[in-house]
Amino acid sequence: KTVEKVTPTLSTSKFLDEGVLTPEEFVQAGDLLTHHCQTWTWQSGDPSRNVTYLPKDKQFLLTRNVPCYSRVRTLENDSKNQKSEEVDVEGDEGWIATSSTSTNDFIEDKVTKDISNLKIESKPTTTTTTTTNKPQQQDSDEEDDNEDIPDMDDFQDDNLVEEDDEGTLSKNKTNSNSQSSNSNSKETTNTTTTEDDNILRTRTYDISITYDKYYQTPRVWLFGYDENRKPLKPEEIFEDISEDHAHKTVTIDIHPHLGISSAYIHPCRHASVMKKLVDKQSENGKQPRVDQYLFLFLKFISVVIPTIEYDFTLEFDT
């Protein structure tokens, strides 16, 4: 944080040269994202945590309640079984809602190749006051597990009963075909049915993107809920992060605009990956557009969190 304070705000565009963003460009890119993907919204967050280099009402981007139908290990098992490249397999299974334009395909390929680069050496190269959270959570999580979970029966009010109500959809009363007709099979993997109302419940994530002044890139934060809408513990969140990245690239810190401790994907390699993607776009004769930065960025982030189905589709050919 100290380093962040003394780092001057980036004022000239270095998007093409270094894959980084100025705050203004972050706002442009966020505007395009929220325009095309209505599930993403600009947020102002806690006013006392506002940063001056971003507009008050555009402090960070947020998408809420994003479904996460299965754990990463099920994908990784699948890909091992089929003995082919991780991302290709996932792509075939349709976990990314890709439009099959050639541009998107190329990005996919590119991202695939970049996966190896994405593995972060455990020490980032620059001085890092902001980046010292190593996967230490393991230990403290174990403590969490030992927490006394109170006996909820103590809180049960036996006088509180409700009449059976025909109009409430639950408890085995639904028409059983409603599920099968509309959900496709991959969505049913590894989710749990907790009640008999035919709804398979799934984990959900709130994903936010903040501007990281030090790295001059976006930074992705994850906050998860389990099938019963209880906040996920850090080690549970790691189940939704691809094995290659879980304990290397994802750490816990206080969200800069919400003041809540959450998991984030470490941004120290973001710029160089973005630079590569941008170069590739140029080579293919496309003019890289800084306002499309976040689409490209979210595409590559989806390699890190492949089962969290957030929206980031843009027809790149437009």
Binding site: Q136, D139, S140, E147, I149, K230, P231, D253, I254, S261
Partner: peptide
């Protein structure tokens, strides 16, 4: 019909936070 329970200790307790951010 029963109350739910949530603990936010892991996101709040200063000691735990400190141990997480070493």
């Amino acid at each position: 019909i029963a109350p739910r329970y949530v603990s936010i200790a892991s996101t709040m307790d200063p000691l735990k936070l400190a141990s997480q951010s070493v």
